[in-house]
Design a protein around this nucleic acid. Structure first.
Lengths: 208, 208
DNA sequence: CTTTGCATTAACAAAATTGTTAGACATAAT
DNA sequence: ATTATGTCTAACAATTTTGTTAATGCAAAG
């Protein structure tokens, strides 16, 4: 019977594997290390998942689903006015990355080393993203024609938002030591960083 | 004697190792694969560099030096007016990343898996960066006091610039398939992306 | 032409990592 | 009580990857 207080060995292994793969990547991860972190013998790991590869697939599947799911929320509520919608999208995206700080590097490294696996995720996102881009671009073009905002390519805007929201987390260990007191209070920093990213994008769009 | 047309085995190995390590990371790299890419037996690799670790050190050293050297150029010419200086710094940084597109991911992964090695690079950059930040901040504060530009924390600006310039290259395989025609002509895309990044930062600083 | 020293290879050895198996053990069904 | 089933372990096996060595070649110095 499923007990919430006593996770099964299988769940323990999955949790340990997730952390190991996300921090060290496929090549850096060790099945023995995963097993011992999960508190089981490494034969156990092979018993449940047969191979390292299959265990990895489980993690990749789940993480790709997480990303895919997040993309749907990030695009913002179409009923909001465009400025509000973009602002809300940025904040949702930022919060998602903040809660999954290891994910971007993992996904990127994974896609680079095994591009074929990305096709599944890409296919799932492709038409959705294209549609949202198109509707956002139409709305932007309309507002721009009225002189209310700058005319801008939504794809460029998208790249900018992704860059601003993601890079801090990916490069955290690189920049943190260079930042002095700025990043010592993590909560404080993240909140002002989020506001900054919104500000940057709003200013980019606002008519001058 | 050193011949420019016939690189030595040692140089061949170093070149192959650089590519292997930059694309696959330390864990993913194989000494046999490096050797065969260099067209030598793998015993040869061990003859010249003894261990994978030592070969890797050579590459890391060189790449960290490259980054360190780049940082000095990126901070811009102090004799220029602040706007020009920042614009020029952004462009220099962008061009550097464009010419070393594999470097950011390598450096980040390397720092995450072996933070102790970063201390050498960090120490070299620390005081320089702090000084440049301070002089830039002073200049910004002066201009802001005159109402010419927005008051802004240079460190925040620095993170924004790094993010915008770097993320595209790090996440290239992730975003490229989502971008339709935008990125098909790479040269064209990079040039407009560079201009966009400058535009974004300038708008962030300009007084509204 | 012989010695010296570095470059090179092939074959081998060691280590690390992944994967398997036979059997033990518990638990629940028959 | 016996059987069946899934869980688990310890020991072992296979594979992959790294590292070594002894022997060979080769070119320059003496």
């Amino acid at each position: 019977m499923e007990n919430k207080e006593q996770p099964s060995k299988e769940q323990l292994i999955l949790a340990a594997a997730e952390y190991e793969f996300l921090t060290k990547g496929y090549d850096g991860a060790r099945t023995t290390s995963i097993a011992s972190a999960a508190g089981v013998t490494h034969a156990m790991l092979h018993y449940y998942f047969r191979t390292k590869e299959q265990l990895f697939e489980r993690i990749v599947d789940e993480k790709f689903r997480t990303v895919s799911h997040a993309m749907f929320n990030i695009m913002g509520d179409p009923s909001l006015p465009i400025m509000e919608r973009i602002k809300c999208g940025i904040e949702t995206h930022f919060d998602f990355i903040a809660q999954n700080p290891l994910l971007p590097r993992f996904v990127i490294n994974e896609i680079i080393t095994r591009p074929e696996r990305y096709e599944v995720l890409h296919k799932r996102l492709e038409s959705f993203v294209k549609n949202v881009f198109k509707s956002l671009q139409d709305e932007i073009d309309q507002e721009a024609a009225l002189g209310k905002i700058e005319k801008i390519d939504i794809k460029m805007l998208f790249i900018s938002i992704m860059s601003l929201n993601t890079f801090t987390f990916v490069a955290y260990p690189f920049i943190e030591p260079l930042m002095g007191e700025l990043m010592v209070d993590r909560e404080q920093f993240l909140s002002s960083r989020k506001a900054e990213n919104v500000e940057i994008i709003i200013r980019r769009i606002k008519k001058q």
